[in-house]
Design a protein around this nucleic acid. Structure first.
Lengths: 219, 219
DNA sequence: TTAATTAAATGTACGCGTATAATTTAATTA
DNA sequence: TAATTAAATTATACGCGTACATTTAATTAA
């Protein structure tokens, strides 16, 4: 069901008659062309000015032709995600974490993560809000292995901080919870930008503290 | 700029000539009619099936006539918020909090709050996601005094929990932060419904713990 | 009664995402 | 070469929110 158009199985060399399917190279070339045009649009005219008709115009084809290469507008927008996540995780990778204490590392990492989204609200909207697209669930995240892999940075640093203090399963839950908290901080600061929010680092600190130093209160 | 159509100043009795403006009663009647039709649509056909043309059809007028009484679709949707918040805070008011310890009260309140949204994702989307509407910022919250007032419940219970442990300003920041965390929990559970999230109460517990028992670590 | 005036109501049109139908294109087969 | 076939492409159409133009309706002044 997913990404039908990504590779579009050549149906194991079916049928010698009729117009042949595009080669994988041709497919990819056009996909790249579309992605590039969308990228340019995003950069030069902003998120709100990306439309299928506008992309088609840039590419030089009819709007519906785009659907030969991508399933939906959302599918096209996903190609921009890589750009965004490259920038985001590139920045995170450059952080000087080595010398510091474990929890301080986590604090720095998480703060940088939150800051990125808050400083780039258009990117946040692109990835997390995707309005105007007819789809019901945003489960895209959990079934994109590449994307999940990038978030491993957090798991690694988090693992160091926990340092065998918790069973693996508990640690995983705590990390999930932490990421939810960070998401909450980001989402609120992006969507209610006018509010006098507390210091960003402080909020992140509370989030980390919350998931880490929980007293073993039964029940 | 805001809610131009809500009361629509009669321009201080201007001009005796020409068709008279609708009376306040007539205005309100039509506004109610529209709100009611929208409410019915929401309940019977779901959030996704609310459209200006559909509402107009129910009301028995042309789509553009709706704009005589409301500024935008979003403006109409806001009338549904009251319904939702009535249900939400009504439920919260019925919670048995009295006998319990303060922090446990907060835990119950917050859990019920989160549960409401998670159990009614359509309501969450209605209030917090509002897709397909052309508007840039969702600052509607902070300049709706009635709505802000309802959230005072949290401030009250939170105040009891803190019990003079923190200065008022610090307490306010902690509360803001807690609400962000809760929002994060909700948002993730609603939008990524397929994921095996940790226990809801546990997540809420970590959020509360995070903002409350912070060690006085300077800097 | 008629003309003028003003608000309310409606009609038309735009760009949107995209479903579906029709057309064009590039290959094979007769 | 001409007919057939299937993929690629494009045209058309729908419902969407709503800007803008037009029409209708209700009042007063002439």
């Amino acid at each position: 069901m997913n990404n039908k158009n990504a590779t579009k199985q050549v149906k194991s060399g079916r049928s010698k008659r009729g117009r042949p399917a595009l080669s994988e190279a041709q497919r990819q070339e056009m996909r790249d062309k579309i992605a590039l045009a969308t990228q340019r649009l995003f950069k030069e005219e902003g998120y709100r000015n990306i439309s299928m008709r506008r992309i088609a115009q840039e590419v030089g084809c009819a709007p519906m032709t785009l659907y030969q290469y991508y399933d939906s507008k959302l599918d096209i927008l996903h190609t921009l995600w890589n750009e965004v996540f490259d920038e985001l995780f590139g920045g995170l990778a450059e952080l000087e974490l080595e010398g510091r204490e474990a929890q301080e590392q986590l604090q720095h990492l998480a703060s940088a993560y939150v800051s990125y989204w808050v400083d780039n609200p258009d990117h946040y909207r692109l990835v997390y809000m995707t309005e105007g697209v007819s789809q019901s669930d945003v489960s895209v995240f959990i079934d994109d292995p590449d994307l999940m892999a990038r978030y491993q940075v957090f798991a690694e640093v988090f693992g160091i901080v926990c340092a065998n203090a918790f069973p693996r399963a508990v640690m995983a839950k705590k990390l999930d919870t932490l990421m939810c908290f960070l998401q909450g901080i980001i989402h609120n600061r992006v969507t209610i930008s006018g509010y006098p929010w507390p210091d960003l680092g402080d909020m992140v600190g509370l989030a980390i503290h919350g998931v880490l130093n929980q007293e073993p209160k039964d029940e």
